[in-house]
C-alpha cells in the first residue's frame, strides 16, 4: 500500500497501544467494581445462635440453633421495634437483615414477629406450612398447618435451585396477619404505642453447606401490578439470601 508512513515511531506506537489498552481495561474494571459495590448486601449478616442442646429427629441427632426476625410495615415501625434499618426506601421490610446465616446439619428454630395487616395471597398454596419439622408452626402458642389465604400478612419462603450440589431446602411459613379491628395492628405514625403483632415459631433441619434464597410470596408491593413491584421487586426488603455454612 502506498501513502506516507505515520508520524509515530514503532516503539512509541507500541507504548501507546499498551497504555491505551490498559486504560480501557481499567475503565471496564472501575465500572465492574462500582456495580459490585452497589449490589453488596445492604445489611450485616444475621447469624443463628447455636445452643448446647441437641435433639433427635427420626433417629438422627442434631444440634440446635435459634434465630429471630421481624417483619415491619414501614421504616418507622421497624425503628420503633429496635431495628436500625439502613434501607433507603420506606417499604415494608424484614429485619434485622436480609441475609441470614444458618449452621449446617442443624435443627434450626426460627421465630418471626409480624406486625403487619394483610389481604389475600395471589397463590393460595403459600398459606400452607411446608418444610418444617412435623409440618406445623406455632402461632402465639397454637400449632397450625396453614393460615387461610385471606388472613396472611406475609410469607417467609426459602427455596433453592434444583440439580445443584447443595441439599434441597424448601420452607414456607405464612405469617398470621394482624387484624386491624382488634387490639393489635395500629397506625404506624402514632408514637408511644406498642405494637402487638403475632409471633410465629417453627423448626426445620438444614442440610449441608450451600446458598439459598428467601422471599415473601404475599403481594405487598402496593400500587403496582399484582402488588409484586416496589418492595417486592427491590432486593433486600422482602427478599434475601440464606447461607447454610
Amino acid at each position: 500500500m502506498s501513502g506516507k508512513e505515520s508520524t509515530m515511531t514503532a516503539s512509541k506506537r507500541a507504548l501507546s497501544a499498551v497504555v491505551g489498552v490498559l486504560l480501557m481495561v481499567a475503565v471496564v474494571g472501575v465500572v465492574g467494581f462500582t456495580l459490585h459495590s452497589a449490589s453488596a448486601d445492604p445489611h450485616k449478616k444475621l447469624y443463628a445462635t447455636k445452643t448446647a442442646e441437641t435433639i433427635v429427629v427420626d433417629g438422627k441427632t442434631y444440634p440446635k440453633a435459634t434465630i429471630t426476625m421481624g417483619v415491619y410495615a414501614d421504616t418507622a415501625q421497624a425503628k420503633e421495634m429496635g431495628y436500625n434499618t439502613i434501607n433507603k426506601k420506606d417499604y415494608v421490610q424484614y429485619g434485622p437483615s436480609s441475609h441470614i446465616v444458618l449452621p449446617a446439619h442443624t435443627y434450626v428454630t426460627m421465630t418471626i414477629h409480624g406486625y403487619d395487616g394483610g389481604e389475600k395471597l395471589n397463590a393460595p398454596f403459600f398459606g400452607k406450612v411446608v418444610g418444617t419439622v412435623g409440618g406445623t408452626m406455632n402461632v402465639d402458642g397454637v400449632d397450625v398447618t396453614e393460615i387461610p389465604a385471606d388472613q396472611v400478612q406475609h410469607t417467609f419462603t426459602i427455596h433453592s435451585l434444583p440439580s445443584s450440589n447443595r441439599d434441597p431446602l424448601f420452607v414456607n411459613i405464612p405469617l398470621q396477619h394482624v387484624d386491624e379491628g382488634d387490639n393489635g395492628f395500629l397506625p404506624t405514625k402514632d408514637p408511644g404505642t406498642n405494637y402487638k403483632g403475632h409471633t410465629m415459631t417453627f423448626s426445620f433441619i438444614t442440610g449441608g453447606a450451600g446458598e439459598y434464597v428467601w422471599n415473601c410470596e404475599y403481594p405487598c408491593g402496593d400500587g403496582t401490578y399484582a402488588k409484586f413491584g416496589a418492595a417486592m421487586s427491590a432486593y433486600g426488603y422482602m427478599s434475601g439470601k440464606v447461607s447454610v455454612a
Binding site: H36, A38, S39, S164, Y235
Partner: peptide, 10 residues
C-alpha cells in the same frame, strides 16, 4: 454459580 458479582436487581 451463586451470582457473587452483582445481585439480581443489577
Amino acid at each position: 454459580p451463586g451470582s457473587k458479582f452483582v445481585g439480581p436487581t443489577i
